[in-house]
Amino acid sequence: MSNLSTRAEQLAAFDRLLTIMDELRAQCPWDMKQTTESLRHLTIEETFELSDAILDGDPEEIKKELGDILLHIVFYAKIGSEEGNFDVTTLIDALCEKLIRRHPHIYGDTEANDAETVSQNWEKIKLKEKGNKSVLGGVPRSLPALIKAMRIQEKARGVGFDWEEKHQVWEKVEEEMQEFKAEFNAADDKEIDQEKASGEFGDLLFSLINYARFIDINPEEALERTNKKFIKRFQYLENAAKNAGKNLSDMTLAEMDVFWEEAKKQ
């Protein structure tokens, strides 16, 4: 049986959610006391939980976490209506109008036959709408540095400031690697300039993120997958050591490496 619903069923489900939100806001002590500020950190947490579900490839968890985020959106809209600032109607209408404005190739006479052109048009329209003095003005200040680097590069590309070929980007990676090595040579025991070495390391990371973008790798997702892989293997190492009656802190690196190699085969 298909899980897909009709438009009437979708509207009815959304209406039911709005009704429940009204009831909770009027009757539940916890829901009654919430503010946009108190919900903020919970929304961030829900977004990261959705990210985990996506990386795990778990459709049921994705559905659950999307539901939680939808609840938060409806909750913010309810608070906005109480404060006389906006409600779910004005929120959705504003979104629809923005989507229409930013897709002139669908709703206007602009031509865009590939995703790259669509993306460039989107950034140009967004820049004009927001009145930012800088193309990079729309990048949230509080974004994690790795994601921020990726968004900065994408926005610069949106106005044509980018490398033309991926081999040029890789040459930049190698150049930054050599500069970093010059500041932090593993074979040299002399004290290094930490501030300068940190700057060179930042440049190297930025160039690697740039190359990842050129070959369609999301560096944030790639690193998180590696994090998850390391956690899984390390926990195998911990359990294997425990089953062998050993304590990790008392084992040599060579002894731990035996279990680590086993973990890689799991």
Rank of each mutant, 00 (worst) to 15 (best):
G67M: 09
E46W: 09
D56C: 10
L18Q: 07
K63R: 15
E49C: 01
G67C: 11
F48Q: 07
G67L: 13
A53V: 04
K64I: 02
R25N: 01
A13F: 10
D22G: 04
E46T: 10
L70Y: 00
L50P: 02
D15Y: 15
M21S: 04
A26W: 00
L55E: 09
E60G: 03
D15S: 15
E46V: 09
I62P: 04
T47C: 13
E46R: 00
I44L: 12
P29Y: 08
Q27F: 05
M21T: 12
T36E: 00
E23Y: 03
T35G: 03
I62F: 02
L71T: 11
D68A: 12
E65Y: 00
R40T: 11
I20G: 03
F14L: 14
D56E: 15
L18W: 04
I62D: 08
E45V: 10
K63S: 13
F48E: 08
K33H: 10
D56P: 00
P59R: 12
D31F: 04
D58P: 04
E49R: 02
R16V: 10
W30I: 09
D15T: 14
L50H: 00
L66Q: 03
A53W: 05
I44C: 09
T19I: 10
G57M: 07
L71P: 00
L42Q: 11
I69M: 06
L17V: 06
L17Y: 05
G57F: 06
G67N: 06
K63H: 12
K33G: 13
S38F: 01
L24P: 03
I44K: 08
K33P: 07
K64A: 13
E65L: 05
D68I: 13
C28H: 07
L42C: 11
S51P: 01
D58C: 02
Q34C: 09
W30Q: 12
C28Q: 04
S51D: 02
I44A: 14
I69L: 14
E37F: 07
S51A: 02
D31K: 06
W30K: 02
F14P: 00
P59S: 05
T36F: 00
T35H: 11
T47Q: 06
I69G: 05
T35E: 07
T43P: 02
E37H: 15
E45D: 03
L50N: 06
L17I: 10
F48S: 03
T19V: 14
I62T: 13
S38D: 00
E61L: 15
T35W: 11
D52S: 12
L39M: 10
D56W: 11
I69C: 04
D58S: 10
F14E: 06
D31H: 09
A26D: 04
S38H: 02
E49P: 01
E61T: 11
